[in-house]
Amino acid sequence: MSDQLMALDGAQGPKPKKRFSRRNIFIYGTLIVVSLYYLLPLYVMIVTSLKGMPEVRMGNIFSPPVEITFEPWVKAWAHACTGLNCDGLSRGFWNSVRITVPSVIASIAIASVNGYALANWRFKGANLFFTILIFGAFIPYQVMIYPMVIILREMGLYTKLGGLILVHTVFGMPILTLLFRNYFSSMPEELFKAARVDGAGFWRIYFKIMLPMSLPIFVVAIILQVTGIWNDFLFGVIFSKPETYPMTVQLNNIVNSVQGVKEYNVNMAATVLTGIVPLVIYFISGKLFVRGIAAGAVKG
């Protein structure tokens, strides 16, 4: 049979597509408007921080700076005052670094081992402790804070860096443990069995088999913890003292201080400075961040 001669009447080939259909205009229009709304605060923050005070008073918060000045940034970083200290946010920045780095390492180290033990070495009672832990993720921190203060005082860690690290490790544990437990559970159990037949023990399997396979989840955990701990305010204000306040607490104290004249440009520069670290992590990490927050959403 030959159908070469069959006539091709009517509709044929690809269906013509309208680039500007009503549907597309609606979808893209809505998304663009919403996106502008979401971007607006960031824009205003940056624009304000680049203006001089006279311009801030005269102009419109949305208008771009006529004369770009970095003075507010310098001032926010090096000279802004909180109480008696006038060495700017830099102190808070370094405090936050000193708090975040060890807290992230400690919390992830402990939680990954927990997750591994829960996923592969189910021992009696393990599930009970895990259930308490997960319930703990929902308990408002306010409920546990006061006894925590007592415990840390008794350990001599209250208002010490070590105490704050301990607090972050403890309160980060539920969500991280869940994250790691789910990840390790999703790995083929036979791998673990094979390693046991090969004679490897708890730590050897963890370090030689599990760790090399779980790089992605460690990256997710690091993103989750760095942003979480960097953004923390509550623990910072309770478990540290003015000299060791993290950046968020110091920022709040600078901006909400009623002493002296309000310098909105300096305030915004300080705000941007505090937000930079998590924002950079966010834009670099992309999809992993989404995975992290989806898992960390419980943290609220």
């Binding site: 083929p188 069995k193 094979a194 390693a195 037949v197 004679g199 490897a200 030689k208």
Partner: peptide, 30 residues
């Protein structure tokens, strides 16, 4: 007894090869 002390070798359905090790690494791990 622990699995390693039983004098057994085991082959799994999903192969269960250690993904980050070479074939040689897999064979020699135990």
């Amino acid at each position: 007894a622990e699995p390693k002390d039983r004098g057994i070798g085991m082959v799994f359905q999903s192969y269960a090869l250690y993904p980050q090790m070479t074939v040689k690494g897999n064979l020699s791990f135990g």
